[in-house]
């Protein structure tokens, strides 16, 4: 009967590389809970994933392919070129502030998407899982902040 929903398995296991970044503290049972919230999307080369200034709703994990992060209309001056195992749009997990840059598929790619609403559901239903993710996210943002400060000091 459920065949009408097609291939309805949750997005298949987030790979080890991704686990190292955001889900490193989660055990396999906790990962099963998170997997249930993951959506899988396929993008073609040059397809826009999200625009700069758009209200952010989700964080993206690169499963295959490459993603270009740039300012709108400035694809030649890339801010970053992300590969398999990287994630982007992480600030959307915290609030619905506008996206700071545009994300485009640099080649055909498959992404796993984790929605902020589901993260809030996790905070209510599985506070431990949500706090582990939040801790990793805070560490990641801390690393980025220190990097930005170091860059600024080098410039000065």
């Amino acid at each position: 009967m459920l065949s009408i929903f097609g291939n309805s398995k949750p997005a298949q296991g987030i790979d080890e590389h991704e686990k190292l970044s955001l889900f490193v503290d989660l055990n396999s049972r906790e990962m099963k809970i998170v997997d249930g919230f993951m959506h899988e999307r396929n993008y073609l080369k040059n397809e826009v994933i999200f625009d700069e200034g758009e209200e952010g709703q989700a964080i993206y994990f690169i499963r295959t392919g490459k993603v270009l992060i740039c300012h709108q209309g400035q694809t030649a001056q890339a801010i970053a070129l992300l590969e398999r195992g990287n994630f982007f749009g992480e600030l959307a997990l915290l609030d619905d502030a506008p996206r700071a840059a545009q994300a485009r598929a640099a080649e055909d790619c498959t992404l796993a998407v984790f929605f902020r609403g589901d993260f809030f559901v996790l905070m209510h239903s599985h506070a431990l899982i949500a706090s582990k993710i939040a801790l990793q996210l805070a560490r990641h943002l801390g690393v980025r902040l220190r990097g930005a400060v170091r860059k600024q000091q080098e410039l000065v």
Binding site: R41, I49, F50, G56, Q57, G117
Partner: peptide, 10 residues
């Protein structure tokens, strides 16, 4: 479709 995905999730 991908373009409407985030809005639809919301």
């Amino acid at each position: 479709p991908n373009a409407f995905f985030e809005r639809t999730l919301y």
